[in-house]
Each structure stands twice: as C-alpha cells, then as structure tokens.
C-alpha cells in the first residue's frame, strides 16, 4: 500500500492527485466536498460528489482518509516539474 505522506506543496503546474469516486459505495454524505481544501469536488443534482476541478487536486488525501465508506481514492500523479 502506498504510504500516505503529507503532500508538500512544491512549485509545479499540474494536479498532484487524481480523484476516483465509487458511486456504488458513496452515500452522498458530502464530507469530501465540504472539506476538500481546493474545491476539486462538488455535489451533483443527486447530492453525490463529482470531480469539477481535477487540476486543483494537491493529493492532500483529506477525502480518502475521511470517507466513511472508502468510496473515494486519490491516486498520486507523477508531478511534472
């Protein structure tokens, strides 16, 4: 399992993480959307999270360490210097 390391901001252009949501497990509690520090996520009309600003993901892992249903995961991206 990839060690979850604190994401240290570094001067770069693109996102550092790619957010994947599992609709079947997500109950739409809204925690990830509410507390994502950079607004990557938003609620759709069924109040389920969708990725609206993928480029803003800093791979801080708030969402996938707080999802009560393990229904979201942040895959680290190779960061282009």
């Amino acid at each position: 399992m990839p060690a979850i390391t604190e994401a240290r901001p570094a001067a770069h252009k693109g996102p550092r993480g790619r957010v994947v949501i599992f609709g079947t497990w997500c109950k739409g509690c809204g925690l990830c959307v509410e507390f994502c520090p950079t607004g990557v996520l938003a609620l759709d009309q069924d109040s389920h999270p969708i990725v609206v600003a993928p480029e803003k993901c800093t791979a801080c892992h708030w969402c996938d360490t707080h999802c009560p249903d393990l229904a979201i995961v942040v895959q680290p991206l190779e960061v282009a210097r």
């Binding site: 079947t24 109950k27 739409g28 509690c29 360490t65 999802c67 009560p68 249903d69 393990l70």
Partner: peptide
C-alpha cells in the same frame, strides 16, 4: 458494501484509520 452505517457516520472513518495503522 457499502457498510451499514448512516451516510456520513464517523465509525467508517475510525475503521479506515484502524486499517491505515495496521497497514
């Protein structure tokens, strides 16, 4: 899955934390 707890319940978060610790 998903688990039996209410949407947004903290118990799932504790389970997730427990798994990370064990891992």
């Amino acid at each position: 899955f998903p688990n039996v707890w209410c949407s947004g319940c903290g118990i799932g978060i504790v389970m997730s934390a427990l798994i990370r610790a064990i891992d």
